[in-house]
Amino acid sequence: MTTNGPRRTDAKARLRALTSDITALILDRNLLPGDPLPTEQELMAELGVGRNSLREAVKVLQALGIIDTRHGFGMFVAENTLSALHDSLSFRGQMSLRHRGHEAGELVDVRQALEVGLIGQAIGAVTEEHLLALEAAVVRMEQSAVEGDMFTDADRDFHRVLFEPLNNTLLTNLLGVFWEVYHSIHDVIGQAEPDKPTLLETAAAHRVILEAVRAKDIDQARVLLGEHFQGIRQLLARMHAEAK
């Protein structure tokens, strides 16, 4: 009879407890992003653990984006990049595309709920500087559409700037995840580049969203953003149908 199962479970439990102790230490000492942690020797003594156990826990916390280690300088509280969340959600979304795209569809649902739900606050905080940046992004889309060129970067910039007034790093990160998944959808299903009329329609759709924001018409902006996600839903539906 083997005892590998229980031993592995115990080891995982100890690792979880140690990572919890380290995060508690960070919170108890009110350490901020960029602040140094105690040295490895100090942590070993304070937490009562060996070097190997501590380093294993630090690796876990690095992967979670909580701790940053700098060779020759030590350990620090990681900056608020939320890169671990970005990588995890992006991976899950891309993996789901190999399995009928269910999680990718859920990500679209979340993004739509966020954008439609928060556009009112974004409009309330928008400044003339934001409006100028949005106008510049739309102009880039329109110029590219006339030439029959894709305008992925301008589209990404438009949605980033649209919610920039909220100063919400998590929302910005989630929007970045969406773009990773969006491009993966095109790669997986072999979607051809949109034709010129489609590009012109997409650019025009962004123009009317901008005009609603400029007019501070929250209800109209919500309707337009809700409609904006139909294209990606159609791609997912097509992929799902072809997988049957």
Rank of each mutant, 00 (worst) to 15 (best):
A104S: 14
L200N: 01
P165T: 03
T172R: 10
V208Y: 06
V138I: 12
G124P: 03
T169M: 05
V161R: 10
K196R: 15
Q112I: 04
N173M: 14
V126Q: 07
T127Y: 09
V181E: 01
D187L: 10
R111A: 02
E147T: 07
H183T: 06
D109Q: 09
F178S: 11
D195S: 12
I119E: 05
G190I: 13
H159Q: 06
G120P: 11
E164R: 07
E180V: 05
Q112W: 02
D155N: 15
A113V: 02
F151Q: 07
E128A: 13
L171H: 07
G105S: 10
A154T: 06
V188T: 14
I185S: 11
F151W: 12
L199T: 10
R111S: 04
L175S: 08
W179D: 07
G124D: 04
P194S: 10
W179E: 15
I185Y: 11
D153K: 13
A145W: 13
N173D: 05
Q112T: 09
T152I: 09
A192M: 10
I119H: 02
H183P: 00
E142I: 05
D157A: 14
D195A: 14
N168G: 00
V126K: 01
A212C: 05
E180Y: 08
N168H: 13
Q143V: 11
T172C: 00
N168P: 01
V116W: 04
F163T: 03
V181F: 12
D155A: 07
A137F: 07
L114F: 07
A104P: 03
Q121P: 00
T152Y: 00
Y182Q: 10
L170A: 15
R207I: 11
G190R: 12
H159L: 05
I123C: 08
L175F: 10
E106V: 06
E106G: 03
